[in-house]
Design a protein around this nucleic acid. Structure first.
Length: 144
DNA sequence: GTTCTAACA
DNA sequence: TGTTAGAA
């Protein structure tokens, strides 16, 4: 039997994409990808000589983020800085959500409640994240 | 057929 | 940044 990794069921770092795949997925031209690498904005998996470039999932996501900011009108260098902030925030947000997110309640087709657990140790109030029609907000429920 | 590097009507 | 060349 194949052993299943405990931290994540998908070994995302082992998913690799060629430059053509990345270009089609992200809409970033291969010319741009090579230029960005030259500018040290992104990096391909260590490869020999003039062999074809391969990118891991993290780099793919990074490329997607940079492209999104470019589409919003940012310059390349500004887009890279924005993407870098996301790279820093992602693991923190992930840790917070995995520990604090308790479950999901579907209240209607267009309304979901995210259970964020107790507000504090008094356990007298519960925090809900609300998402309704694309709008998000918080709500505190008093527990009697 | 795809990707690489280098160069530029 | 696009595109093109010749090579791998």
């Amino acid at each position: 039997m194949e052993e299943i990794p405990e931290k994540s069921f998908l070994a995302t770092d082992k998913l690799i994409f060629g430059i053509g795949q990345v270009s089609k997925i992200t809409g970033v031209s291969s010319r741009q990808l090579r230029y960005w690498e030259q500018q040290k904005y992104i990096s391909a998996i260590q490869t020999k000589k003039g062999a074809s470039r391969q990118y891991n999932m993290h780099t793919l996501i990074r490329i997607v983020n940079i492209q999104r900011f470019l589409n919003r009108g940012f310059t390349l260098s500004a887009a890279v800085e924005k993407a870098l902030k996301i790279d820093e925030a992602a693991p923190v947000v992930k840790q917070f959500m995995t520990t604090q997110f308790k479950g999901l309640k579907k209240e209607a087709d267009n309304k979901f409640l995210l259970d964020f657990g107790y507000l504090d140790n008094s356990k007298k109030q519960r925090v809900w994240g609300i998402i309704e029609n694309g709008e998000t907000s918080f709500e505190i429920e008093d527990i009697s």
